[in-house]
Design a protein around this nucleic acid. Structure first.
Length: 561
RNA sequence: UGGGGCGUCGUCAAGUGGUAAGACACAUGGUUUUGGUCCAUGCAUUCGGGGGUUCGAAUCCUCCCGCCCCAGCCA
């Protein structure tokens, strides 16, 4: 699936692919893969990779596999593969029957390891992890060769097979590639390719007590699947020589690894580790907390797959480290929801109005447009009565020059209803405004004055006779700093958690029609923002999450003052 | 004193020797029964810096500066 197909996006990876096709590489075949480790939830950074990999497959009439990189059973769980497949599907991508697992290749991987041993390119090392580290050297000093480095091939073969058979304790030995302990690239200093690890794998159970390492398993998995272009993030750039080394030594199909910059987003963090800390530390309510940049969180917040896809198209793909402005993501979801979200009126902070000259015991049903951007969305009836609620912010007793909403003596329009004029603000003992007394002009029914007189503002409102009480959860940035995790002053991301990232409003009043809404449905609350029905919602008591506010010019003017 | 990358508008990002796309953000007008949407306009004489090659350089050469990644039996 591709959005914005009218504007094909160019990037350096496509240039490489174009060139490859021109040169007839792989007979013009294009095959990518998205290779998550099932050890956590997907976030918007993964969405970038998903859109890139699946998008390229679509653009070049190729294929994209979903492959779980499940070579470390200590951290991986079945529940994560379920969550990941759900998220990728939800984003709108399909991999048909090409759902693969690195663990499917364990036997083949083992076979290639035997070959490497026979070729003298791998050896069993008896050093423990501390000793291996000590032998590795430093960034500026070469490493020392392991005393086991020149163990004869047949002995290596024998011990490696006994490793598989379970003869040795966890961590007692490793299989290592025999490359170059003095390489400037630390990845090439005889990297471990198999470790002994007795943990139950979510797919292979207790069949194995040795597991391959990422560098070894990943390139061969790509090769087995005949991947043509293996796209990964920048931190794997240093691993490419190793990726190439394994495939060259084994002599199998050789995909091309290409690295791109991972996505960073302002006002949030984007690593599984940090997101996990937010969950475990109780700073959010879970992986799908609407404040989280996870796919599950964004979904619950009310982001649509389309909005995320178009966002991924717009941010581009390059090799420079970058942090994309959260405002772009918000723009993308507003743009999408503006076209599709039905409008409804909801008052978040109610202020009662009594319309003195409107009859008691009368409820009118007024026509309201469901979506001015989509005529086919039709109209609905909204009940109007003598007492209504408006937004507290829409009235000021002593308004500044540029405030053109309701004020004493001023006439405004109630959307789809009538013009009303504020006659009096009624206060309590403490001088707080408790309600407004207004009068209406019956001739303005529907919202237009027959005499053509204009009004400076149109306010949303809800009948105080017929409404549904709702809970509304307002979200704002999770962090108070744009880049909470890359500061140099000794502080860390958790120091910048926004204490006001969630505000729960339990006494909001919505049009009655909201009671028939279902979890996941989107609405625009007129003049306020886009909202999405939460899974915790019920017909008796709807719960709405604010996805994003509307652009608010008045707020800008107010803040400038 | 190691290896690998990257520096184009506030933020992303095109550009691949012929004279700086686009988007977001920002600003200003217009339309409007959402201070929304939409529309129009403005917003890098210059591409991290210096030198060089060339009729011509963000693009080529050279030196310098800055930033990111790497020392898991994680991925």
């Amino acid at each position: 699936m591709r959005d914005d197909s009218s504007k094909p996006v160019s990037n350096f990876i496509k240039h490489i692919i174009d060139e490859d096709i021109k040169n007839g590489k792989n007979d013009g075949r294009i095959h990518t893969r998205f290779p998550p480790e099932p050890n956590g939830y997907l976030h918007i950074g993964h969405a970038k990779s998903i859109c890139l990999n699946f998008g390229i497959a679509v653009d070049y009439s190729g294929l994209c596999n979903l492959r779980f990189d499940d070579t470390n059973p200590d951290r991986e769980e079945l529940k994560y593969v379920a969550a990941i497949t759900e998220d990728v599907h939800w984003l709108g991508f399909s991999w048909e029957n090409r759902e693969y697992y690195a663990s499917d290749y364990f036997e083949q991987l083992y076979g290639y390891a035997i070959e490497l041993i026979k070729k003298g390119r791998a050896y069993v090392c008896d050093l423990n992890s501390d000793e291996i580290r000590q032998h590795r050297g430093t960034l500026t000093e070469a490493g020392q060769e392991s005393p086991y480095r020149n163990r004869p091939a047949d002995e290596n073969l024998d011990i490696f097979m006994r490793m598989r058979a379970g003869e040795f304790e966890d961590g007692a030995r490793t299989l290592r590639a025999k490359i170059d302990m003095s390489s400037g690239n630390i990845n090439m200093r005889d990297p471990v390719i198999y470790r002994i690890q007795r943990s139950t794998h979510h797919r292979t159970g207790d069949q194995w007590c040795i597991y391959p390492m990422y560098d070894y398993a990943h390139c061969i998995s790509d090769s087995i699947e005949k991947i043509t272009h293996s796209l990964c993030t920048l931190e794997f750039e240093d691993h490419r020589p190793l990726y190439d080394w394994f495939l060259d030594e084994i002599g199998v199909f050789h995909p091309q690894q290409i690295e791109f910059a991972r996505l960073n987003l302002s006002y949030t963090v984007m690593s599984k580790r940090k997101l996990l800390q937010l969950v475990n530390g109780g700073h959010v309510k879970g992986w799908d907390d609407p404040r989280m940049p996870t796919i599950a969180g964004l979904r619950r917040r009310g982001y649509t797959p389309e909005s995320i896809r178009i966002f991924c198209d717009r941010i581009g793909v390059a090799k420079a480290d970058s942090t994309v402005d959260m405002a772009l993501l918000e723009y993308c979801v507003r743009e999408d929801l503006n076209k599709r979200a039905p409008r409804i009126m909801t008052v978040l902070h109610p202020l009662k109005i009594v319309i003195l000259n409107y009859p008691h015991d009368t409820i009118e049903e007024l026509d309201a447009v469901n979506n001015p951007e989509d005529e086919s969305a039709g109209t609905r009836k909204v009940p109007f009565s003598r007492e209504i609620y408006i937004e507290r912010d829409d009235f000021m007793e002593d308004p500044p020059k540029k405030f053109f909403r309701l004020a004493p003596g001023r006439e405004i329009r109630l959307r789809y209803a009538y013009f009303i004029t504020c006659e009096k603000a009624v206060k309590n003992d403490r001088g707080e405004i408790v309600e407004l007394h207004c009068t209406y002009d019956p001739a303005t029914r529907g919202g237009d004055a027959p005499d053509g007189r204009k009004v400076k503002a149109t306010l949303h409102w809800v009948s105080a006779e017929k409404f549904i009480q709702t809970e509304v959860r307002l979200y704002s940035h999770l962090f108070t700093e744009a880049e909470p995790d890359s500061r140099k002053d000794g502080t860390e991301f958790r120091d910048y958690l926004n204490p006001e990232s969630l505000e729960v409003l339990t006494d909001c009043y919505a049009e009655p029609s909201l009671s028939s809404s279902k979890p996941g449905e989107h609405f625009q609350f007129e003049r306020l923002g886009y909202f999405c029905v939460d899974p915790e919602s019920s017909p008796e008591r709807p719960v709405l999450n604010r996805t994003v506010t509307l652009r608010d010019t008045w707020a800008k003017i107010k803040n400038k003052n």
